[in-house]
């Protein structure tokens, strides 16, 4: 982010025009880290999933049931990660610049670019030729966990198959070639038989000519749906909205409070627990049917958990 001198993501935007090389490399990094094929992140994710799929052979019941939960957590974090990088890349590199600094940013020097390029190439290699990489690092893995995967290099066409080919296999290179082939053949056919003309015009955007970069989604806006869906569970997110009545000219106001629930629910109750205990017995006789039920239900579940453990 040195090229623009801005630190806040909300003041960037449009860097793909002013820092084209960085934008390309950064995109590669985003794809890799979001565990998307055909780069290396996906290969790792794929191998973890394959490991999870072997879990039914584990003997312990509780572990058996926990493994799918781990799987879902992994998948959720991967997709949330992808969403996060769409946001980061979309707000910082795409769209129109939100500040002068973003407009005049330049690519960093050759060395930084070179470093990034080397890393990206490595990501690509690991993604396309995972078998070679797996074989290379498996001696080290053997020392750590005491087991190793079957050697991958002798499998045909550089694909990987951790257990057996009939069970699962993945060939990054073939998929990649496949994608490139389809994309280029589509392009060739369209340019040949369809049209290759294009023309530049102002963005459509419902016909209202508005040059303000304010009309772009901000990072905070982009995250809002996810924040509202998941944030309410993990943290206690409160949006406080002050919308003036029609005809009122004062500015509208939105403030967001994010509280860490763990703190609130773990520590604060402890201090309150003592007083609650004192008055708790009295309240018990005033509960509604629903609260009685909840009490009984909680006790039942507690007992069952005891039995399970």
């Amino acid at each position: 982010m040195n090229g623009s001198g801005e630190r806040s993501i909300e003041r960037l935007g449009g860097l793909i025009h002013s820092m084209p090389k960085t934008a390309f490399l950064f995109l590669g990094g985003c794809v890799a880290i979001s565990a998307l094929p055909p780069l290396n992140g996906f290969v790792s994710e794929w191998l973890v999933f394959q490991a999870i799929l072997l879990s039914p052979s584990l003997p312990q019941w509780t572990v058996k049931l926990l493994v799918p939960a781990v799987g879902v957590a992994l998948a959720l974090s991967a997709t949330l990660g992808a969403g996060c990088y769409i946001r980061a890349y979309g707000v910082a590199f795409l769209g129109r610049p939100r500040s002068e600094a973003a407009r005049t940013a330049t690519d960093p020097d050759r060395w930084s670019l070179g470093t990034m390029a080397v890393l990206l190439t490595m990501c690509l290699m690991a993604g396309l030729l995972p078998s070679l990489v797996i074989d290379t690092i498996s001696p080290a893995a053997k020392d750590f966990v005491g087991g190793r995967m079957p050697t991958q290099a002798e499998l045909s066409w550089l694909s990987i198959a951790p257990v057996a080919e009939s069970r699962s296999s993945y060939n990054g290179l073939l998929v990649f070639v496949f994608i490139l082939f389809s994309a280029y053949s589509a392009r060739w056919i369209i340019h040949k038989f369809g049209s290759a003309r294009s023309r530049r015009a102002p963005a459509w955007d419902c016909g209202y000519i508005e040059t303000s970069p304010m009309t772009q989604y901000t990072g905070s806006s982009f995250a809002q749906p996810i924040r509202r869906t998941l944030g309410v569970i993990a943290f206690s997110v409160k949006e406080r909205l002050d919308m003036p009545a029609p005809g009122d000219m004062r500015p509208a106001r939105l403030s967001i409070e994010i509280k860490d629930r763990i703190f609130d629910y773990l520590y604060a109750p402890l201090t309150r627990a003592v007083e609650t205990c004192a008055s708790g017995l009295n309240i018990l006789s005033l509960l509604t049917i629903q609260e009685y039920l909840a009490l009984v239900f909680g006790a039942l579940v507690f007992l069952l958990v005891l039995v399970a453990i």
Binding site: A75, L94, S221, A223, Q224, P225
Partner: peptide, 26 residues
């Protein structure tokens, strides 16, 4: 990403909703 490239609000609306849906659908 393509939805956010032009820098109009509708692309952003679509992309952010898609990211929300995708993070649960996948």
């Amino acid at each position: 990403l393509a939805g956010m490239d032009i820098g109009t609000s509708f692309g952003g609306i679509g992309s952010s909703r898609e990211a929300m849906f995708g993070s649960l659908a996948e």
